[in-house]
Computed example of a mutant assay.
Amino acid sequence: MQSKQAGQVLAANLRAIREQAGMSLSELARRSGIAKGTLSQLESGQGNPTIDTVFTLSGTLGVPVSDLLTATPRTEVVLVRGADVDVLSSNAVDLRMLRRLDLTATVVEVYDQRVRPGEVQRSTGHPGREHVLVTEGVLRVGPPEAPYEVGPGDYVSFPAAGPHIYETVDGPVTSVLLLEYAAGDARPHAHWD
């Protein structure tokens, strides 16, 4: 994440969710494995979290990622300019959360996802279901022992609870990632490696 506004949204949401859970900063640090100083910086709006950090906090607090990253829209029309959205990065993936959709009993997060060649993004699992639509390039995604190979126009969906990977086959990949959470579908200790 990069902008001051996004940092303030994360700071406010993280503190509110932690306090609502009745958890101290020290307890959140212990449960998440994230240093207390780092958490303090995030809650003050001074931190610069990675994908790993945000997904770990999501899993530890038992909330969708979007609960941490999005402010409530104030109008009926929502226009999101990609250039205005902060990027969460890891060793292989750049994610930009474009929208959170609160449906009846489901939350869906919409991401612009870019996967860089030469690295493998590994996840030990997290709440929900992943939906991936590749728009450019060829992507290996899914369980590490039997990933799916998907190209432009291809779509794959799988439960996100188990280990899974993202890896390019040849060159960079552009895709749309939807994370779908059923009501109450959040479990502790989920994170990207």
Rank of each mutant, 00 (worst) to 15 (best):
L42Q: 07
L42P: 05
S44K: 15
S44Q: 15
Q46W: 01
Q46S: 14
G47K: 06
G47F: 08
N48H: 12
P49C: 12
T50C: 12
T50I: 11
T50V: 12
V54E: 08
V54Y: 07
F55M: 15
T56N: 13
T56S: 14
T56R: 15
L57Q: 02
L57P: 02
S58Y: 06
G62C: 12
G62R: 09
V63F: 10
P64M: 10
P64Y: 06
A71K: 12
T72W: 02
T75R: 14
L79D: 09
V80M: 05
A83I: 01
V85Y: 00
D86M: 02
V87W: 00
V87N: 00
L88I: 09
L88K: 01
L88W: 04
S89W: 01
N91C: 06
N91G: 15
V93I: 15
L95P: 04
R96E: 12
L98D: 03
L101E: 07
D102Y: 00
T104Q: 13
T104E: 14
T106F: 05
T106Y: 02
V107D: 10
V107N: 07
V108E: 11
V108L: 15
V110P: 01
D112L: 11
R114K: 04
R114M: 00
R114D: 03
R114V: 04
R114L: 03
R116P: 06
P117W: 00
P117D: 13
P117N: 10
G118V: 12
E119Y: 06
Q121H: 11
Q121Y: 07
R122I: 12
S123F: 12
S123R: 09
T124H: 13
G125L: 10
G125K: 04
G125T: 09
H126Y: 03
H126F: 01
P127M: 10
R129W: 01
E130H: 06
L133K: 04
V134I: 13
E136W: 04
V138N: 10
